[in-house]
Amino acid sequence: MTDFSSAKSVSASGMQAQAQRLRHLSENISNADTPGYRRKLISFQTALGQGEQISPVQVGRVRLDQSDLSTIYDPSHPLADEAGEYEGSNVNLLIELADAREAQRSYEANLKMFDQARNMSSSLMQLLRR
């Protein structure tokens, strides 16, 4: 029975990690036009337990993308320098949307695994009751 619990635990940790990833991706998308905004990056790690073969997923530290900020020419902008340019964000909407779709699909895969483990556990309990 612990294998089913472990599978559900790993799937639930994967769903939590992907939900947090989606939160950061949505922040990036909403701040794409904010001057000076740096894209947030998130990484995943496995939470190693003692003697466990199956490890849940943990979210690593949130980092800021250190790639160059885009330069925008708009002399009428309040942040523009004497050349009429200011620094925009380093968010690429195409990349953010692709990452959001990947995170959504990963979330759905973890949800299906969770449901499958739950259904298998329930079926096993029904068989044992007979």
Rank of each mutant, 00 (worst) to 15 (best):
N110I: 06
S89C: 07
L127H: 08
V10K: 00
S106C: 07
N28Y: 00
L97W: 11
T71A: 06
I29W: 00
G84K: 12
A83G: 07
I54G: 07
E85M: 07
I54C: 05
E82D: 12
P56L: 03
S70E: 12
M1N: 09
M1C: 06
S5T: 09
E85H: 13
L127Y: 11
L93Q: 14
Q58C: 01
L128I: 15
D3A: 13
A80V: 09
S11Y: 00
A80L: 13
A103G: 03
V91Y: 00
S70K: 14
A7K: 01
Q45V: 05
R38V: 04
Q126V: 14
S76N: 11
G49D: 04
Q53H: 06
L48W: 11
T2W: 08
N92K: 11
Q66R: 13
S89K: 01
S43D: 10
P56G: 02
R63E: 13
N110W: 02
H77D: 08
N119F: 08
K112W: 14
I95P: 03
Q20W: 03
R63Q: 11
G49N: 12
R38G: 02
A109G: 12
G51S: 15
L124H: 12
L69S: 03
R21Q: 02
P56S: 04
D99N: 15
I42E: 00
T2H: 05
M15P: 00
M113H: 09
R38K: 14
A117P: 00
A80Q: 05
S89R: 01
E96K: 03
N90L: 06
S55W: 02
P35N: 07
D33I: 04
A7I: 08
Q104A: 14
G88K: 03
S9F: 08
G36Q: 10
T34Y: 07
N119S: 12
L25V: 11
D3C: 10
P75A: 08
L64G: 04
V59G: 01
G14D: 01
Y86I: 09
R118D: 13
S55L: 04
Y107K: 03
M15A: 03
H24K: 07
Q53E: 08
A117S: 15
L41C: 02
S122I: 11
L48A: 05
Q126C: 05
R129H: 11
E96M: 07
K112G: 13
Q58K: 10
Q20R: 10
T46V: 05
R63T: 10
Q18K: 04
L41I: 13
Y73N: 10
A103Y: 00
R118C: 11
S30E: 08
N110S: 10
S67M: 09
L97F: 15
S106D: 13
A100T: 10
V57F: 02
A109D: 06
H24N: 11
Q16G: 09
L128P: 04
S76W: 07
V62L: 09
L48M: 15
V10S: 00
G14C: 01
S55H: 15
D115N: 15
Y37W: 06
F4N: 02
T46Q: 15
A103F: 00
D3K: 05
M113T: 13
Q53K: 10
V62D: 04
S30T: 15
G36M: 06
F114T: 05
H24C: 02
I29K: 01
D68M: 08
L93C: 10
M1I: 11
Q16S: 14
G51L: 05
I54W: 08
S43C: 03
V62Q: 04
R130A: 15
I29F: 02
S70F: 08
N28I: 00
A19I: 04
N90F: 05
L111R: 04
S13A: 09
